[in-house]
Nucleic acid binder design. Sequence first.
DNA 1: CATGACACCTGCTCGC
DNA 2: TGCGAGCAGGTGTCAT
Length: 275
Amino acid sequence: MPELPEVETIARDLQARIAGAKIRAVEVSKPDVLRVAGPKVLARRTSGATIQRSWRRAKLVVLDLSTGDRLVVSLRFTGNLLIEDGSLSDDDRKYSTVRWKLHDGRTLHYYEVRRLGTVSLMSPSQFEKYVAKLGVEPLEPAFTTDLLFRLLQSSRQAVKKRIMDQTAVVGIGNIYANEALWRARIDPSRPSNKVTRAESDQLHRDIIEVLEEALNSRGTSFRDYRDASGEPGDFVRRLAAYGREGLPCPRCGKKLVGTHAIDGRATVLCVRCQS
DNA sequence: CATGACACCTGCTCGC
DNA sequence: TGCGAGCAGGTGTCAT
């Protein structure tokens, strides 16, 4: 489900709403989402802890606990973190897999339909080891035009797959990969090492631009993404390519074409604009 | 090492 | 209406 803008929106909402809250008790109804620590260890090591800070790294929501441990949540397709203040729908209740009961009476739910997402309780060293494999944050100054060009040069994979590779650049998933490549007028199937310097620099601008615009719209709700308060993201109205197969290209009017040729993921492009 | 195939899950939509 | 196939904002592992 969520890519950088959606995960950032969730992490910021949680920071505003539950930073400083103390955990009273933990309930786990679907233990298969837990990694590193199982239900008993999770309950023992998080009960009584204060959630000091909520932030994002790559597509992970990270909750820093007063104990030094971190709760690291990978939402994958359908995961979400929802704050219940007394009004949770039946559906939300049905898919609530882990619950942290807070001292103030509210509950933080880890919500999951497909249960592909994970909740990991990590010590500082486990966390460091885990994030060491991740690539550069595209909205930070370290993401330079030089770095992107080097990353593209170093692989023969399709450029779309390359920019979705979380060990290269983090946070870009299928929606924003399609959108950034459409904006940059680059064919997603081009081998990444065949992208020119000028194209790479344009792609660099468009990756930042599309992620920032989506963040300002609080993400894209194509199906079931919602923020921590349950509200949908607004960027779906601004999508030019993703989900618009068969509809006219907003730039030239030619019908957009869909394919699954790159890594089996849905790709939509304008064959006239993107080459 | 880079790359591709597959596994992990449930729910929704579409075609017969 | 029922039923099977295919698809969904992702990533970890394993074989080649």
